[in-house]
Protein backbone atom coordinates (compact mmCIF):
# COMPACT_ATOMS: atom_id res chain seq x y z
CA UNK A 1 0.00 0.00 0.00
CA UNK A 2 1.16 3.48 -0.78
CA UNK A 3 2.27 5.50 2.22
CA UNK A 4 0.78 8.95 2.17
CA UNK A 5 2.95 11.62 3.58
CA UNK A 6 1.99 14.96 5.03
CA UNK A 7 5.10 16.41 3.39
CA UNK A 8 3.07 16.28 0.17
CA UNK A 9 0.99 19.12 1.53
CA UNK A 10 3.76 21.44 2.70
CA UNK A 11 3.13 25.04 1.76
CA UNK A 12 5.74 27.63 0.89
CA UNK A 13 5.69 31.19 2.19
CA UNK A 14 7.62 33.86 0.27
CA UNK A 15 8.01 37.48 1.30
CA UNK A 16 9.71 39.35 -1.56
CA UNK A 17 11.18 42.77 -0.77
CA UNK A 18 10.82 44.26 -4.26
CA UNK A 19 8.38 44.26 -7.13
CA UNK A 20 10.87 42.42 -9.36
CA UNK A 21 11.29 39.67 -6.78
CA UNK A 22 7.53 39.37 -6.42
CA UNK A 23 6.94 39.01 -10.15
CA UNK A 24 9.75 36.49 -10.33
CA UNK A 25 8.27 34.50 -7.46
CA UNK A 26 4.86 34.50 -9.08
CA UNK A 27 6.20 33.55 -12.48
CA UNK A 28 8.52 30.80 -11.32
CA UNK A 29 6.52 29.13 -8.55
CA UNK A 30 4.83 25.88 -9.43
CA UNK A 31 1.33 24.79 -8.45
CA UNK A 32 -1.30 26.99 -6.89
CA UNK A 33 0.37 30.33 -6.32
CA UNK A 34 -1.52 33.01 -4.40
CA UNK A 35 -0.71 36.63 -3.64
CA UNK A 36 -1.21 37.53 0.01
CA UNK A 37 -2.08 41.19 0.47
CA UNK A 38 -4.59 41.80 3.27
CA UNK A 39 -5.40 38.11 3.50
CA UNK A 40 -9.02 38.75 4.44
CA UNK A 41 -10.29 36.68 1.51
CA UNK A 42 -7.35 34.30 1.08
CA UNK A 43 -7.06 33.14 4.69
CA UNK A 44 -10.82 32.86 5.15
CA UNK A 45 -10.99 30.58 2.14
CA UNK A 46 -8.02 28.54 3.31
CA UNK A 47 -9.73 28.08 6.67
CA UNK A 48 -12.77 26.59 5.01
CA UNK A 49 -10.60 24.28 2.92
CA UNK A 50 -11.92 25.91 -0.26
CA UNK A 51 -8.45 26.90 -1.32
CA UNK A 52 -5.14 25.19 -0.69
CA UNK A 53 -2.17 27.17 -1.96
CA UNK A 54 1.19 25.58 -2.68
CA UNK A 55 2.91 28.94 -2.57
CA UNK A 56 1.89 32.12 -0.77
CA UNK A 57 3.55 35.33 -1.93
CA UNK A 58 3.25 38.02 0.74
CA UNK A 59 3.58 41.42 -0.93
CA UNK A 60 3.28 43.59 2.15
CA UNK A 61 7.07 43.75 2.64
CA UNK A 62 7.39 45.63 -0.65
CA UNK A 63 7.64 49.25 0.45
CA UNK A 64 6.72 50.80 -2.88
CA UNK A 65 3.42 48.94 -2.87
CA UNK A 66 2.38 50.06 0.60
CA UNK A 67 1.88 53.73 -0.13
CA UNK A 68 -0.72 56.16 -1.40
CA UNK A 69 0.92 58.70 -3.72
CA UNK A 70 -0.36 61.85 -5.34
CA UNK A 71 1.08 61.92 -8.83
CA UNK A 72 0.56 64.19 -11.83
CA UNK A 73 -1.87 61.66 -13.28
CA UNK A 74 -3.81 61.38 -10.03
CA UNK A 75 -3.77 59.30 -6.86
CA UNK A 76 -1.97 55.99 -6.88
CA UNK A 77 -2.94 53.36 -4.31
CA UNK A 78 -0.53 50.45 -3.85
CA UNK A 79 -1.66 46.84 -3.67
CA UNK A 80 -0.41 46.54 -0.10
CA UNK A 81 -2.25 49.58 1.28
CA UNK A 82 -4.85 48.57 3.87
CA UNK A 83 -8.17 50.31 3.36
CA UNK A 84 -7.96 51.98 6.75
CA UNK A 85 -5.04 54.05 5.37
CA UNK A 86 -7.27 55.34 2.60
CA UNK A 87 -9.75 56.59 5.22
CA UNK A 88 -6.94 58.38 7.02
CA UNK A 89 -5.63 60.11 3.87
CA UNK A 90 -7.45 63.42 3.94
CA UNK A 91 -6.51 64.57 0.41
CA UNK A 92 -7.67 61.26 -1.08
CA UNK A 93 -10.85 61.40 0.95
CA UNK A 94 -11.55 64.90 -0.22
CA UNK A 95 -10.97 64.06 -3.87
CA UNK A 96 -12.72 60.69 -4.01
CA UNK A 97 -15.12 60.38 -1.07
CA UNK A 98 -17.15 57.69 -2.83
CA UNK A 99 -14.12 55.49 -3.47
CA UNK A 100 -12.87 55.94 0.08
CA UNK A 101 -16.29 55.21 1.57
CA UNK A 102 -16.65 52.12 -0.59
CA UNK A 103 -13.25 50.88 0.54
CA UNK A 104 -14.21 51.74 4.12
CA UNK A 105 -17.28 49.51 3.95
CA UNK A 106 -15.26 46.34 3.39
CA UNK A 107 -15.64 44.56 6.72
CA UNK A 108 -15.02 45.74 10.26
CA UNK A 109 -12.22 47.87 11.66
CA UNK A 110 -10.29 44.62 12.08
CA UNK A 111 -10.71 43.81 8.38
CA UNK A 112 -9.99 47.42 7.43
CA UNK A 113 -6.59 47.12 9.03
CA UNK A 114 -5.74 44.38 6.53
CA UNK A 115 -7.91 44.44 3.42
CA UNK A 116 -6.85 46.22 0.24
CA UNK A 117 -8.76 47.53 -2.78
CA UNK A 118 -6.53 45.56 -5.12
CA UNK A 119 -7.38 42.42 -3.17
CA UNK A 120 -11.05 43.38 -3.27
CA UNK A 121 -10.74 43.72 -7.05
CA UNK A 122 -8.71 40.58 -7.72
CA UNK A 123 -10.86 38.39 -5.46
CA UNK A 124 -13.34 38.99 -8.27
CA UNK A 125 -16.53 38.81 -6.26
CA UNK A 126 -19.54 40.39 -8.00
CA UNK A 127 -20.41 42.05 -4.68
CA UNK A 128 -17.02 43.66 -3.97
CA UNK A 129 -17.64 47.07 -2.43
CA UNK A 130 -14.78 49.09 -3.85
CA UNK A 131 -15.16 47.92 -7.45
CA UNK A 132 -18.29 49.86 -8.55
CA UNK A 133 -16.77 52.98 -7.01
CA UNK A 134 -13.54 52.42 -8.95
CA UNK A 135 -15.57 51.87 -12.13
CA UNK A 136 -17.47 55.12 -11.59
CA UNK A 137 -14.24 56.94 -10.83
CA UNK A 138 -12.67 55.74 -14.08
CA UNK A 139 -9.73 54.11 -12.34
CA UNK A 140 -6.92 52.24 -14.08
CA UNK A 141 -5.09 49.13 -12.92
CA UNK A 142 -1.30 49.07 -13.22
CA UNK A 143 -0.23 45.48 -13.80
CA UNK A 144 3.29 44.12 -13.46
CA UNK A 145 4.38 40.86 -14.97
CA UNK A 146 7.28 38.94 -16.51
CA UNK A 147 6.83 41.02 -19.67
CA UNK A 148 6.84 44.31 -17.83
CA UNK A 149 4.12 46.79 -17.02
CA UNK A 150 0.71 47.25 -18.60
CA UNK A 151 -2.03 49.65 -17.65
CA UNK A 152 -5.67 48.76 -18.29
CA UNK A 153 -9.10 50.14 -17.53
CA UNK A 154 -10.37 48.84 -14.23
CA UNK A 155 -13.39 47.28 -15.98
CA UNK A 156 -11.06 44.90 -17.82
CA UNK A 157 -9.52 43.25 -14.77
CA UNK A 158 -12.38 41.04 -13.64
CA UNK A 159 -13.79 38.53 -16.12
CA UNK A 160 -16.32 36.67 -13.99
CA UNK A 161 -16.89 35.45 -10.45
CA UNK A 162 -13.45 34.46 -9.17
CA UNK A 163 -11.83 35.10 -12.57
CA UNK A 164 -9.44 37.86 -13.63
CA UNK A 165 -7.61 38.68 -16.84
CA UNK A 166 -4.24 38.42 -15.08
CA UNK A 167 -1.81 36.02 -16.72
CA UNK A 168 0.62 33.68 -15.00
CA UNK A 169 3.17 35.75 -13.11
CA UNK A 170 1.15 38.95 -13.28
CA UNK A 171 -0.16 41.02 -10.42
CA UNK A 172 -1.87 44.35 -9.97
CA UNK A 173 0.73 46.67 -8.51
CA UNK A 174 -1.51 49.65 -7.85
CA UNK A 175 -4.72 51.42 -8.70
CA UNK A 176 -4.53 54.74 -10.48
CA UNK A 177 -7.34 57.24 -9.88
CA UNK A 178 -7.69 60.13 -12.34
CA UNK A 179 -7.15 63.74 -11.29
CA UNK A 180 -10.32 65.01 -9.70
CA UNK A 181 -12.02 67.54 -11.91
CA UNK A 182 -13.46 70.80 -10.67
CA UNK A 183 -17.14 70.59 -9.70
CA UNK A 184 -17.14 66.80 -9.59
CA UNK A 185 -18.17 64.38 -6.91
CA UNK A 186 -18.63 60.66 -6.38
CA UNK A 187 -20.68 58.52 -4.04
CA UNK A 188 -21.12 54.83 -3.26
CA UNK A 189 -24.10 53.23 -1.52
CA UNK A 190 -24.89 49.60 -0.80
CA UNK A 191 -27.76 47.69 0.70
CA UNK A 192 -26.90 45.25 3.44
CA UNK A 193 -29.29 43.78 6.00
CA UNK A 194 -26.86 44.62 8.80
CA UNK A 195 -25.21 47.98 9.27
CA UNK A 196 -21.72 46.48 9.21
CA UNK A 197 -19.93 43.19 8.62
CA UNK A 198 -22.00 42.36 5.61
CA UNK A 199 -21.84 41.73 1.88
CA UNK A 200 -23.76 43.99 -0.49
CA UNK A 201 -27.02 42.55 -1.77
CA UNK A 202 -26.84 45.33 -4.34
CA UNK A 203 -24.71 48.46 -4.64
CA UNK A 204 -24.38 51.54 -6.79
CA UNK A 205 -21.79 54.23 -7.39
CA UNK A 206 -22.14 57.49 -9.28
CA UNK A 207 -19.48 60.00 -10.32
CA UNK A 208 -20.66 63.34 -11.70
CA UNK A 209 -19.07 66.49 -13.12
CA UNK A 210 -21.11 69.69 -13.36
CA UNK A 211 -20.70 72.93 -15.27
CA UNK A 212 -20.94 76.30 -13.56
CA UNK A 213 -24.68 76.33 -13.93
CA UNK A 214 -24.97 72.98 -12.16
CA UNK A 215 -25.76 70.94 -15.25
CA UNK A 216 -24.20 67.49 -15.46
CA UNK A 217 -21.49 67.34 -18.12
CA UNK A 218 -20.04 63.94 -17.32
CA UNK A 219 -21.59 61.01 -15.50
CA UNK A 220 -20.49 57.49 -14.76
CA UNK A 221 -22.86 55.07 -13.04
CA UNK A 222 -21.75 51.63 -11.86
CA UNK A 223 -23.58 48.78 -10.13
CA UNK A 224 -22.42 45.90 -7.96
CA UNK A 225 -23.91 42.49 -7.11
CA UNK A 226 -26.39 42.59 -9.96
CA UNK A 227 -24.40 40.61 -12.55
CA UNK A 228 -21.43 38.20 -12.66
CA UNK A 229 -19.17 41.27 -12.63
CA UNK A 230 -19.65 44.89 -11.58
CA UNK A 231 -21.33 46.91 -14.32
CA UNK A 232 -20.56 50.31 -15.74
CA UNK A 233 -23.96 51.36 -17.08
CA UNK A 234 -23.28 53.80 -19.93
CA UNK A 235 -26.99 54.43 -20.60
CA UNK A 236 -27.56 55.37 -16.99
CA UNK A 237 -24.73 57.87 -17.11
CA UNK A 238 -26.00 59.31 -20.36
CA UNK A 239 -29.46 59.83 -18.84
CA UNK A 240 -27.98 62.32 -16.40
CA UNK A 241 -25.83 64.32 -18.79
CA UNK A 242 -27.30 67.70 -19.66
CA UNK A 243 -29.70 67.57 -16.69
CA UNK A 244 -29.75 68.96 -13.20
CA UNK A 245 -30.97 65.67 -11.79
CA UNK A 246 -34.64 66.39 -12.21
CA UNK A 247 -36.99 63.55 -11.30
CA UNK A 248 -37.44 62.50 -14.89
CA UNK A 249 -33.70 62.23 -15.51
CA UNK A 250 -33.28 60.26 -12.32
CA UNK A 251 -36.07 57.87 -13.26
CA UNK A 252 -34.58 57.38 -16.76
CA UNK A 253 -31.27 56.62 -15.10
CA UNK A 254 -32.85 54.24 -12.60
CA UNK A 255 -34.68 52.46 -15.43
CA UNK A 256 -31.39 52.09 -17.33
CA UNK A 257 -29.86 50.59 -14.19
CA UNK A 258 -32.70 48.13 -13.80
CA UNK A 259 -32.41 47.16 -17.48
CA UNK A 260 -28.72 46.51 -17.10
CA UNK A 261 -29.17 44.14 -14.16
CA UNK A 262 -28.62 40.46 -14.74
CA UNK A 263 -28.56 39.14 -11.17
CA UNK A 264 -29.17 35.76 -9.60
CA UNK A 265 -31.40 34.51 -6.80
CA UNK A 266 -29.20 33.44 -3.94
CA UNK A 267 -28.91 33.37 -0.18
CA UNK A 268 -28.38 37.12 -0.11
CA UNK A 269 -31.16 38.37 -2.33
CA UNK A 270 -33.56 37.79 -5.17
CA UNK A 271 -33.46 38.84 -8.82
CA UNK A 272 -36.45 41.14 -8.32
CA UNK A 273 -35.10 42.73 -5.21
CA UNK A 274 -31.64 43.38 -6.62
CA UNK A 275 -33.03 44.82 -9.81
CA UNK A 276 -35.45 47.12 -8.11
CA UNK A 277 -33.11 48.35 -5.40
CA UNK A 278 -30.31 48.94 -7.94
CA UNK A 279 -32.43 51.81 -9.27
CA UNK A 280 -33.17 53.10 -5.77
CA UNK A 281 -29.52 53.13 -4.71
CA UNK A 282 -28.31 54.64 -7.99
CA UNK A 283 -30.81 57.46 -7.53
CA UNK A 284 -29.69 58.10 -3.97
CA UNK A 285 -26.01 57.89 -4.93
CA UNK A 286 -26.57 60.32 -7.83
CA UNK A 287 -28.15 62.87 -5.49
CA UNK A 288 -25.27 62.52 -3.06
CA UNK A 289 -22.66 62.81 -5.81
CA UNK A 290 -24.41 65.88 -7.19
CA UNK A 291 -24.34 67.48 -3.77
CA UNK A 292 -20.64 66.70 -3.44
CA UNK A 293 -19.99 68.20 -6.87
CA UNK A 294 -21.52 71.44 -5.60
CA UNK A 295 -24.96 71.02 -7.14
CA UNK A 296 -27.67 73.02 -5.49
Amino acid sequence: MRRYDTRDIAVQYLAPQTMTEAVQALAESKGRVHVLAGGSDLLARMKGGYLEPDVIVDIKRIKSMSVIKKRAEGFSIGAGVPCIHMGRHSALKKAWPGVVEAAGLIGSDQIQGRCTIVGNLCNASPAADSVPALFAAGAMAVIQGPKGERIINIENVVKGPGKTSLKKGEMVERIQLPVKQARSGDAYLRLTPRTEMDIAIVSASVNLTLDRAGTVTEARVALGAVAPVALLVAKAGKALIGTQLDDEALETMAAACRDACDPIDDKRGTIDYRTRVAGVLATRAAKLAWQRAGGK
Binding site: T195, E196, M197
Partner: peptide, 16 residues
Protein backbone atom coordinates in the same frame (compact mmCIF):
# COMPACT_ATOMS: atom_id res chain seq x y z
CA UNK B 1 -26.84 24.69 4.04
CA UNK B 2 -25.88 27.83 2.10
CA UNK B 3 -24.87 30.11 4.96
CA UNK B 4 -22.85 28.23 7.60
CA UNK B 5 -20.88 31.24 8.81
CA UNK B 6 -21.22 34.52 10.68
CA UNK B 7 -20.97 36.52 7.46
CA UNK B 8 -24.21 35.21 5.95
CA UNK B 9 -25.93 34.00 9.10
CA UNK B 10 -26.44 37.52 10.30
CA UNK B 11 -26.57 37.87 14.06
CA UNK B 12 -26.91 41.51 15.14
CA UNK B 13 -23.70 43.54 15.38
CA UNK B 14 -23.20 46.41 17.81
CA UNK B 15 -24.19 49.10 15.31
CA UNK B 16 -27.47 47.32 14.51
Amino acid sequence: LQNPGFLDYRIPVCSD
